[in-house]
Each structure stands twice: as structure tokens, then as C-alpha cells.
Design a protein around this nucleic acid. Structure first.
Lengths: 231, 231
DNA sequence: CGCACTTTGTGCATGGCTTCACAAAGGTAC
DNA sequence: GTACCTTTGTGAAGCCATGCACAAAGTGCG
């Protein structure tokens, strides 16, 4: 009802901008904790580790929430970004797969802190089912449909072994879920309209290794050449 | 020694391509396990979930390793990508911070599988130091410099609370580390020449929430309008 | 040996993101 | 009330990545 302040705005937030909004939100919360009421795009950009022009353009996609000559009201901007990201409501999250990673995620405080609530836990291993974690019993994967329906789960985190991930994804999608955060190292195949985000630990390490190797080559390879390359 | 087959190639791999190479590598390993010897760009692209033209362009940055009319030799391509990513050597990784997440990472098999070896574990908590995980004693953070130097660590994973992360980063950088994988929800400030990659669980959830909210708005808000927008 | 078929590697056009630079807008001091 | 100062919001330019479409190159069959 209260939505659609401007149609262009509604459809027009670039993905790159959306991906940075959580970053700004975190920086703003840091400022708020330190009792800062107002912040310029320049200062906020530094806190978030981005270019200030980019920050302003990103924020301009949400609306015109700054005051020229002054900056942005920290609390107000926190509210606006939270609203845009959908964090003013809270989201029930289910975690599937309670190995090391799944348990770490279940215990991770950062989830709860901003509008996310772990509402269900699933595993296929009978010796894990029934166990209590973060004040909640682990359900068997067979009850997935009933439990996520009953508890209003709308986001599912997959932390199973790679071999089970696609199967789990198929089931949660059949149960109506359209947002998945996948920690399993596989490419999930999903129908249109389902959003999957992937977090892949070893991919990140491999990218670091690439750059590390390049740095090492520079030094041991030929210092002269590295110098020549700077020119 | 055996490096620099072509100077342009050496400097010229776009970041976007580097970020996808691990993906291709994983897809190729899957094919290799199923005994497949040769693959076309089309099939590999499907397995990796990307466009085949993009895949070919990515691979062309490494060199000309395909055979027209046939495709790519799976084993050979695995080797070439591994070499380019620096996975033919193995990398000693240290994990700092052994809370839930740090322990999960230490136990995570995916690290070891591809050229990465957990070589040191650190924590600041005296009750954790000395504990054995994955066949290794946890060292105190005070010994960081000596231990990482002694064990040839070149990549550090930070899994500490947010409040400690910058301090840890400063110390490992002072000790000569130039590659950091950061799980703490803070923007690390580092000097030039140091690579930081960030993995942020709650950021990913927030991005999903944004899209989920948008989908929900579409349905409940005004189905007519959604139709109109498609035009 | 030549022809038809397959698949790579890439020139080119398109689109999106980033960055610069500045006009517009608001605040403040006198 | 005016003049000056600060900072936002954005037009415009440049850059990088994506995807199409095709020529070049290799295979295999007759």
C-alpha cells in the first residue's frame, strides 16, 4: 500500500547497488553506535570502503534522502535502506544440513541481528534429528514441506554436502521457496523466478591464490621487469 | 622459469574471468570423475552455468587450449586452469579465530581438496589454545608472527569477532602476509598490495531479502501492474 | 583428396557500471 | 536579507564485461 513512491525507483535499482546497500547499512550502524547523527557522503564512503560518487549515486536510486550542505541523517538513512532491503519485517530462515558449517551458521549471531530468524533446522541423519540447537529441535528432511510451510519460512540456506544440494533445492522450490543461499560447491539448476546466491569458500581461496602467485612471480621472476611494467 | 609464454596474457586476465575459473575447474573435475575425456564449450558452459561464448572468451585469455571441431581435453584444461590459478603448488593457510565458524572452516574438507592445507590455527582465548583440531594444536595469537613464518603460511583466514578483525589484519600484514580471506563483518583497511576477499553471510541474506520482498510486492501489490510492466 | 560438418577463437556492438565534474540547493553568519 | 560555504544529486564520458555472429581451423567420411 505505502509502496511505489516513484515507479522508476521501484524497478530501477541496479544489482550492483543492491549488493552494496548492506555494506552502507553496516557502516551506518557503526556510526550510530558511536552517537553520530549526521554524515557526509565522503565520510560514509570512507567507512564503507567505496568511492563517494558511487555512494551518492547508489543512494540516489532510493530517493533523495540527503540535505545539501549537511549530509545524511544517520538514523533516517538506516531506516530507508532497511526498508528498501526489506529488513523492517523479519524473515524466517531454515538451514538444511547440520554438519560443521550448518551448525556454525545456526549459531552465528549475525543472522539474528538484522531481521533474520532461524526458524527451522533440517538434517537427513537420524542421529542428528531431534538434537537441540539454538533452542530448537532438528527436524528430519522428510518433514521439510510441512515444517517450512507451518513456520512461514521464506529463505532456505543449503549447507549439505554437494551431492545432496540439488535434491534439496528441488524440494524446497517445490514447496514454494524462491530464495536460496547455497553453501554447497555445486551449480544449482533452478527455474526462473528463483534466486540463488552462492557462497563458496574454496573459490575465494583460489582467487586469492591467483593473485598471490602473481605477486610472487613479480618478485622472484624479474624485479627489472616489474619496474618496467610500472611505466 | 617456465612462465611468461606471452606477456599480454600474463597481465591481461580480467578479474571477472579469474572469478569464474574456479567454477570451470570444478565443473571439469566433475566431468573427469565421470570419465569424460573431451568436452565442448557448450557442454562445459552448461555444467558451469554460464554462457558458452563467455566461457570461450574466458578460456581464450589463458591461451588457445581447445581443438576446433572437437572441444577441450578435460585433463589438459584442468591442468592449465590449475596452473594459472596457482594450484599446482600447495598453499599453507592459517585460520585465526576458532569460534563456531573457525572450527567449521578448519574441518571443512573443501579446503584441503584443492591445493590448500590448513597449516596453523590461532585463537586469543587461553582455554582454546592447546586444543587439538584436525591433528593440530591451536596456537596463541601472540605467537602469530613466529608460527606463520616458520610454517610458510601465505594466506590467512580471519574468522574472529568483528571487533578483533582489523587488529589481526594489521598484525598478519606486518608479518608479511598479502592475502586475506575475511569472514568478519567489517571493512578491513589495508595497504596497497594486500588482497582482501570478504565473505559475508548476512550481506548475502540481505540481498536475498531484497529480491524476495520485491517478488512479494509484485504478487500482493497489483497483479495488473506487474503485467503492464512486462510490456 | 575433397567436401561437409563441427567447434573454437574473436571482432564488434550493446549495455551497465564507475568516475568525474559541476550546477542546484540548502545552511550559516553577519 | 544577502553572500558565502558546503555538500548533494546527476549529466556526460569512459571503461569493462557480455553476447552475437562468423571466419578460421580441424575432423572424418566417401
Amino acid at each position: 500500500m505505502t509502496r511505489r513512491p516513484s515507479q522508476a525507483r521501484e524497478r530501477g535499482i541496479p544489482d550492483a547497488t543492491v549488493a552494496r546497500l548492506p555494506l552502507y547499512l553496516r557502516a551506518l550502524n557503526g556510526l550510530a553506535e558511536r552517537g553520530i547523527a549526521t554524515v557526509s557522503s565522503e565520510d560514509l564512503a570512507v567507512a564503507a570502503g567505496v568511492n563517494s560518487a558511487k555512494l551518492r549515486k547508489d543512494l540516489s536510486h532510493l530517493g533523495s534522502y540527503g540535505t545539501r550542505g549537511v549530509g545524511y541523517d544517520v538514523q533516517y538513512l538506516i531506516y530507508q535502506i532497511s526498508r528498501e532491503l526489506g529488513l523492517t519485517q523479519d524473515w524466517a530462515v531454515a538451514i538444511v544440513g547440520l554438519g560443521n558449517l550448518g551448525r556454525a551458521l545456526a549459531n552465528y549471531g549475525g543472522f539474528v541481528s538484522r531481521g533474520f530468524r532461524v526458524a527451522a533446522l533440517f538434517d537427513a541423519d537420524a542421529s542428528v534429528v531431534g538434537e537441540h540447537l539454538v533452542g530448537m529441535a532438528v527436524d528430519h528432511i522428510d518433514d521439510l514441506e510441512a515444517v517450512i510451510g507451518g513456520r512461514g519460512v521464506s529463505i532456505v540456506v543449503i549447507a549439505t554436502p554437494a551431492s545432496a544440494a540439488q535434491q534439496v533445492a528441488d524440494r524446497v522450490i517445490a514447496a514454494g521457496i524462491t530464495s536460496i543461499l547455497n553453501f554447497a560447491p555445486v551449480v544449482l539448476t533452478v527455474p526462473d523466478g528463483v534466486d540463488v546466491r552462492k557462497v563458496d569458500l574454496s573459490t575465494e581461496l583460489q582467487i586469492l591464490a591467483f593473485h598471490e602467485q602473481r605477486k610472487a612471480d613479480r618478485e622472484t621472476g624479474s624485479p627489472m621487469m616489474a619496474e618496467a611494467m610500472d611505466a
